[in-house]
Simulated assay, not measured.
Amino acid sequence: MTVETLAPGVHAIDAPFEDVPLQIYVIEGERLTVIDPGVPQTAEGPLAQGLAELGHRPADVDLVVNTHGHHDHRGGNGVVAAHNPGVVIAAHPADATWISSTEQYLAEEYLRFRPAWEPPTAALDRIRLLCGADLPVTLELSHGDELDLGDGHVLSVEHIPGHTDGSIALLHRAAKVLFTGDAVQARGTPLQCRADFFPHYRHVAEYRRSLDFFAGCGAEIVGTAHTGVCAAHRAAQLIAESRRFADEYTAVFTAAFAEAGSATLADLARATRDHYPRYDDGIPLFNTISGYLAELCAAGVARHDPPDRFVWLG
């Protein structure tokens, strides 16, 4: 088990599952706090072991903060709650229903693009298992809130609705540590046994705004969910790479759409994968394409012809 201390009382636990890299974060304030306990397997295994190395038990956890409602960030909530039924679950209200209802999460995230794309039944069943127990969010977090955990640990909440509508980042100003969740996508999430996940953001302008915030917030250590713990120089590289990819994909996407003149989501997904064959044809790809289409339609450059066709207006 690897527990890395980022600052006094602030720790990262290496907690990969399947072929997905993952970091869980623990803050030892008067309220023992876990940021994103991952999936049930990571909460039962690496998190519990890491807490033991720090002299704690899962029953000692007072607060769980979910940076957003995806299964690999909230799936461990139920494991922690099984040890401490009084644990507080905190998240932004825009993602709260995903955390409290697996079926609503699947409907709004994984089934939203039917019939253009739909995951296999086996994949949905796997995600259900990774979601763990459904639990209500008992503390809603809004932009500008401060979580005082005691012993000098205060987390400032930044609402960054790029990756999901309810994504948040947490800034520990005293320790100069930033927790980003999945808000820094760079060139996607590299996987060991499958095609990589495409850079995943629903809202292009908000994604770019979050990168601007990260670059200027003064953090010297950045804790990501899937890219590990980054010192300031490495974090700056990731932010720069995220911007470069967003610019690059804007050009690739616009060129493919303009050449087609009229296209469906599935058409644009095929064009993207032809250009980037390393990536999975899944929800990250379709969410990001949808985000670019929404931006173009709002700017009057494209028109949506329901149910699933988009027309380039130029």
Rank of each mutant, 00 (worst) to 15 (best):
V20D: 04
P46W: 12
Q49K: 08
V39A: 00
L22D: 02
Q49A: 15
P40F: 01
G50R: 11
P37M: 04
E30K: 12
V26D: 11
G38D: 03
G38Y: 05
G55M: 02
T42Y: 00
A43D: 04
Y25A: 14
L51C: 11
E44H: 13
V34Q: 05
P40R: 05
L51P: 12
G29K: 10
G50K: 11
A48H: 11
G45Y: 11
E53G: 04
G29C: 00
L54H: 01
I24G: 01
V20L: 13
P21A: 06
I27F: 14
E44D: 06
L22A: 13
L47S: 10
V26L: 14
P46S: 13
E44L: 12
L47P: 00
P46A: 15
P37D: 04
V20I: 13
L32A: 04
V26Q: 03
P21Q: 05
G45P: 11
G50E: 02
E44Y: 13
A48M: 04
E53Q: 15
P40C: 04
G29T: 02
E44I: 08
L22S: 14
P46D: 12
G50V: 00
P21L: 06
Q41H: 13
E30Y: 07
T33I: 09
Q23R: 15
G45C: 01
A52L: 11
P46K: 00
Q49W: 01
T42Q: 01
P21K: 09
D36R: 12
G50Y: 07
I24P: 07
P46V: 10
P40G: 11
V20P: 07
R31T: 05
I27D: 03
V34H: 06
E28I: 08
Q23A: 05
G50P: 00
L47G: 02
G50H: 07
P37F: 12
I24F: 02
Q41G: 03
L51V: 09
L32I: 08
E44W: 02
I35E: 00
T42P: 06
P37T: 06
P40M: 10
G45R: 08
A43K: 03
Y25S: 14
A52C: 04
V26N: 09
E30N: 07
D36K: 13
I35Y: 01
L32R: 02
Q49F: 01
E28G: 12
